[in-house]
Measured scan of single mutants.
Amino acid sequence: SEEKKKAKERLERLGASSELARELLDRANGNAEKAERLLRKLL
């Protein structure tokens, strides 16, 4: 979806690899905010 694509791009801008961004979104069930929080914990 367009929303998921935007979320993935945002995670990548924050420093996630394409693969990591995809994994985070999967774990967050597509929830962009939750995926971002997970990423911030990792960085």
Rank of each mutant, 00 (worst) to 15 (best):
A32H: 06
E19H: 09
L43C: 08
R37G: 09
K4P: 08
A28Q: 02
A35K: 00
R22I: 15
E36D: 02
K8R: 15
L38R: 04
E2T: 10
R22P: 00
L11R: 01
A7G: 08
E2K: 08
L20H: 02
E2P: 09
L14R: 02
A16R: 01
R27E: 08
N29S: 09
G30Q: 05
R13A: 14
D26T: 09
R10G: 05
E19P: 04
E3Q: 11
L14W: 05
E3P: 08
L11I: 03
N29H: 13
R27T: 07
A7Y: 07
L39Y: 09
E12M: 15
E12P: 00
E23C: 15
K4N: 14
E3N: 12
S17A: 04
E2Q: 10
L20Q: 07
G15I: 03
R10H: 09
R10Q: 06
G30W: 14
K4W: 15
E33L: 12
E33M: 10
E33P: 06
E2G: 09
R40Q: 11
L42G: 04
K8S: 13
N29W: 07
L39C: 00
L42M: 11
E12V: 11
L11H: 01
E9C: 01
E3V: 10
S17M: 03
R37H: 10
S17K: 03
K41I: 13
L20I: 05
E3I: 10
L14A: 05
L38F: 06
L24S: 01
L11G: 01
L11Q: 01
A28E: 04
D26S: 09
S17L: 05
E12Y: 05
A16T: 02
E12S: 03
L43D: 03
L39S: 00
A32T: 07
L43E: 04
E19D: 12
R37E: 15
A35R: 00
K41N: 12
G15A: 04
L43T: 05
K6N: 10
A7F: 09
L25C: 03
R22S: 14
L43G: 04
R40S: 08
L38I: 08
D26L: 14
A7W: 09
R40T: 07
E36S: 04
K6S: 12
A35Y: 03
E19K: 09
D26V: 11
G15D: 01
E12C: 08
R40Y: 14
K5V: 11
G15E: 01
S17G: 06
L39D: 00
N29R: 10
L14Y: 04
L11V: 02
L25T: 02
R22Q: 15
L20D: 01
R10T: 06
E33S: 09
S18I: 06
K41R: 13
K34G: 07
K5A: 11
A32Q: 08
K4S: 14
L24Q: 01
S17T: 12
E2S: 12
E9Y: 05
G30E: 03
K34Y: 15
E3C: 08
E12L: 09
A35P: 00
D26F: 12
L11S: 00
K4T: 14
N29Q: 11
L20M: 09
L38Y: 07
S18R: 08
N31Y: 03
E23T: 09
S18F: 06
L38C: 10
E9I: 07
E9G: 06
R10N: 07
L38Q: 05
A32V: 15
N29I: 03
K41H: 12
L14H: 03
R40E: 10
A28T: 14
S1W: 13
S1V: 10
L11Y: 02
R40M: 15
S1E: 14
S1L: 14
L39E: 00
A35F: 03
G30N: 08
L25I: 07
E12I: 14
L14G: 02
E36H: 04
E23V: 12
L11W: 04
L14Q: 05
L20G: 01
E23W: 15
G30F: 06
L25R: 02
A7S: 07
K34I: 15
D26W: 13
A35T: 00
A7N: 08
L25E: 01
K6E: 11
S1Q: 12
L24W: 04
N31D: 15
K41L: 14
A28L: 06
K34A: 15
L20P: 00
L43K: 06
E2C: 08
L39G: 00
E36Y: 07
L43Q: 09
A35M: 03
D26K: 13
L24F: 03
A16K: 01
L25P: 00
E3H: 10
S18P: 15
K8E: 14
K6H: 11
L11K: 01
A7E: 05
E36A: 07
A21K: 02
S18A: 14
R40N: 09
K6Y: 09
R27W: 15
S17Y: 04
S17F: 04
G30K: 02
E12A: 05
N31Q: 05
S1N: 12
K34D: 13
R37A: 14
E3Y: 14
K8I: 15
N31R: 03
K41Q: 14
N31C: 01
R13S: 12
S18L: 07
S18D: 10
E36M: 10
S18G: 08
E2R: 07
N29Y: 07
E23P: 00
N29C: 11
R13L: 13
E36W: 06
N29M: 10
A35E: 01
E19Q: 12
K34W: 14
L24K: 02
A7M: 08
E33G: 07
E2L: 13
E9Q: 12
R27K: 11
R27D: 04
L25H: 01
S1R: 11
L42F: 11
A21H: 00
K41S: 09
G15W: 04
L42Y: 12
A32G: 08
K4E: 14
R22H: 11
R37C: 12
L39V: 01
R27Y: 11
R13P: 01
D26C: 09
D26P: 00
R22C: 15
L25W: 05
K34F: 14
R22V: 14
E9M: 07
E3W: 13
A32W: 13
K41P: 05
K8T: 15
K6C: 03
R10Y: 10
K41Y: 15
L38V: 06
R40F: 13
L39P: 00
G30Y: 08
K6D: 11
L25A: 05
A16C: 00
R37L: 14
L42T: 05
L43P: 02
L20N: 01
E33T: 09
E23G: 03
K5T: 10
K6P: 05
G30I: 02
D26N: 10
K4D: 14
L42I: 12
R13D: 07
A16D: 02
L20E: 04
E19W: 12
S17V: 02
L39H: 01
L39R: 01
G15Y: 03
L20C: 12
N31I: 06
A16G: 03
L42A: 06
R10S: 05
R10V: 06
K5W: 10
N29V: 04
E23M: 13
E12T: 08
A35I: 04
S17R: 02
L42N: 02
S1C: 09
A16E: 01
E36N: 02
L20W: 06
L11A: 00
E33Q: 12
N29E: 09
L24M: 05
E33F: 09
R27N: 06
L43M: 10
K5P: 07
R40L: 15
S18W: 06
K8N: 08
E12Q: 09
E9L: 08
A28G: 02
R27I: 13
R27F: 10
K34T: 13
K5G: 08
R37W: 14
S1P: 11
L42V: 06
E2Y: 11
R10W: 12
K8H: 14
E19R: 09
R13T: 08
L25M: 07
L11C: 02
A32R: 06
E12G: 03
A16P: 00
E19L: 08
S17I: 03
L20F: 06
K41F: 13
R10K: 09
K34L: 15
K8A: 13
L24N: 00
E9N: 08
L20A: 02
E9D: 08
L24R: 00
L38M: 14
G15L: 05
A16V: 06
L38K: 03
K5Q: 13
D26G: 07
A16S: 02
E23N: 07
S18V: 08
A32Y: 15
A21D: 00
S17N: 06
L20Y: 03
E2F: 11
R13V: 07
S17D: 08
K6L: 13
R22A: 15
R22M: 15
S18H: 08
R22Y: 10
A28I: 02
G30L: 04
E33A: 14
K6W: 11
L38G: 01
K5D: 13
A21L: 05
L39K: 01
L25Y: 04
A16I: 06
G30R: 02
R13Q: 12
K6M: 10
L42C: 07
R22E: 15
S17H: 05
E19M: 07
E12N: 03
R37K: 11
A35C: 00
R22F: 10
